[in-house]
Amino acid sequence: MKRIATWSGFVYFAAMTAALTFPGLQPFNTIRPLILGVPFVFAWYLFWILGSLLVFLWLHRVHGK
């Protein structure tokens, strides 16, 4: 389980790096639709930060045992 969690974390942060830099960011680099009033690309960054919180929680749960 620890190995799966570690690799999942690695894959998530590798995907996050690609999604928040060019050229991976380009498809999501739009103003519309506004998400709770915020431009889509701005919300895209917040989405990945919130996702990292969940990934860290899972990693901690697995590695803390």
């Binding site: 060019f22 960011l25 680099n29 739009t30 103003i31 506004l34 709770l36 009033g37 915020v38 431009p39 690309v41 701005f42």
Partner: peptide, 21 residues
Amino acid sequence: GGIGPMFEQLEALRPEMLTAP
């Protein structure tokens, strides 16, 4: 008047400020 109205005004006047880079 709010976050949404602010970004709608920005989109109309300075859209280049709202997309990366």
